[in-house]
Design a protein around this nucleic acid. Structure first.
Lengths: 208, 208
DNA sequence: GTCTATAGTTAGATAGAC
DNA sequence: GTCTATCTAACTATAGAC
């Protein structure tokens, strides 16, 4: 758990966390525009006016929620570094992404919904911090290619391939579950996903 | 263009098409819950009440729109058949999917948004027609594996990989464009996507 | 088939007592 | 920090004249 900001009291901190959890479910169910503060309050079991006490407006709540999600990701995904071998680095990256899709699908879905609807809130982020972070990842893959450790692949499209194929199991889970004719994916199913994606993507990059 | 239903007059048919086009933009911008009939009417340049004349309610309009999208897809994606070689069939499938992402991204986005938000409308479809169609595709890949034409891969996860990696360029286009530091993707960019995905996925399946 | 008027609901946000 | 009451705006949907 992240430590509370020095500027925020504990009650405030705790209540905001409760609201974030409720808001996450509401936004993932109805999208940003369709989400209602009334239902968020009901989910959080607090009076509606309290949400306005803690957050300026719906957009402010949504922005802070997205910001939290991105903070968590930035901590978890520093997997691709030049000092690692492509096989280990890519395997670990694929596994981490799939396990995130399993453990916290709602974060992935909220992010996906924001992008699909044109990223009205995240556009600035995409064109600043995100692009900067991405270029670091790209340069690692370029280095691997130059050193002949992997085939000549387009680094951007390889990254998009890994993101999309792993996040798919969070974002499109209803379709996956219907396709597999199951109630829900099991731990074994997710292991099978990791195995399948690792097999195809690594071999597809000429690794091994 | 699809021929007008016999039961529907030409005026009705034409007006519904105008409404569908307007609704597509509205739903893709705000999601189902966030979309407003008032704005759809403004986009279509008709009186708001006319939408209620042609459609029972917002859900009815949305369902028919989704139904249209799926109809178009069913016509375009009968690419995987047993009589074709895996290399040609998969290459053609990847290309068709990428070009669809390029030419009609909004259809992909509306479908994606519906799934991300739990498929309240499409759940029945996913568990009936979709699953049936999918099993046909799966059996083609299984046949290829049995004949030793491709590596032993999980057919479902291979299909998910192709869907997710190609649809990504429609659904997450804002992120892609930010990553590539461009205003928009060009025809050449999409050709590069086809080449990259074909290279990695085919080799990843042991083709060639 | 079209349009105006309006009923009925739900929404975001704030004021002010506690 | 909490809660009730309330204002204002936006929305869906329908009725009924043209």
């Amino acid at each position: 758990m992240a430590k509370a900001k020095a500027s925020e009291g504990n009650i405030r901190q705790k209540n905001k966390a409760v609201i974030f959890n409720a808001a996450k479910k509401e936004f993932v169910t109805y999208g940003f525009k369709g989400a209602s503060i009334k239902r968020i309050a009901e989910r959080a079991n607090i009076a509606r006016a309290n949400i306005h006490y803690y957050f300026q407006d719906k957009t402010d709540l949504y922005q802070q929620l997205l910001s939290n999600i991105i903070d968590v990701w930035n901590k978890d995904y520093d997997t691709l570094t030049v000092d690692k071998a492509p096989k280990q680095a890519l395997s670990a990256y694929i596994r981490a992404k799939v396990m995130h899709a399993k453990d916290d699908p709602d974060s992935s879905r909220i992010f996906a919904s924001e992008l699909i609807h044109g990223a009205p809130v995240l556009n600035d982020y995409l064109n600043s911090d995100f692009r900067e972070w991405l270029e670091g990842q790209v340069s690692v893959i370029e280095a691997w290619v130059e050193q002949g450790l992997i085939d000549k692949v387009n680094p951007h499209h390889l990254l998009f391939l890994i993101w999309s194929s792993t996040q798919h199991y969070a974002d499109f889970n209803v379709q996956v579950v219907a396709a597999l004719n199951k109630e829900a994916m099991t731990d074994e199913d997710f292991e099978e996903v990791v195995a399948s994606l690792t097999q195809i993507i690594l071999k597809g990059c000429g690794i091994e």
